[in-house]
């Protein structure tokens, strides 16, 4: 799969990444090379093979339903780019 400019732009939009206009071609070439590497997988016979999402066969552990986290808003917001009245501020959300 070879990616062109518009493919890269589409992917970058989905991933919310601003790319410099003059770098798009370069990314297209590099990503195409990486995909060529990845496409070596095509030769593997994976019929009847279960997908493996985790290295260990363990089951999810469950947590007891208890409130254990105190209010640490001040500490957590000390490093926030922009807050007011305890709220994180971002450019207007339009629905």
């Amino acid at each position: 799969m070879s990616l062109d400019r518009s493919d890269v732009e589409k992917i970058a939009h989905l991933a919310r990444l601003a790319l410099d206009e003059n770098q798009v071609e370069g990314y297209a070439a590099e990503l195409s090379n990486i995909l060529a590497l990845v496409e070596q997988l095509e030769v593997a016979d994976t019929d009847n093979i279960e997908p493996m999402a985790h290295p260990l066969h363990m089951a999810q552990r469950l947590r007891e339903d208890q409130v254990t986290e105190p209010d640490r808003r001040d500490q957590n917001q000390a490093i926030a780019p922009l807050v007011e009245n305890g709220l994180y501020l971002v450019p207007k959300v339009i629905e």
Binding site: Q66, T68, E69, D71, R72, R73, N76, N85, G86, L87
Partner: peptide, 26 residues
């Protein structure tokens, strides 16, 4: 429930903004 689905923060309604948002929720 008392706490959140993936963290130990409270889910009580009507708290001060972000006072019940722990680092996991954030």
């Amino acid at each position: 429930s008392k706490s959140k689905i993936f963290s130990g923060a409270s889910i009580a309604y009507g708290a001060e903004p972000n006072s019940q948002a722990c680092i996991v929720d954030l």
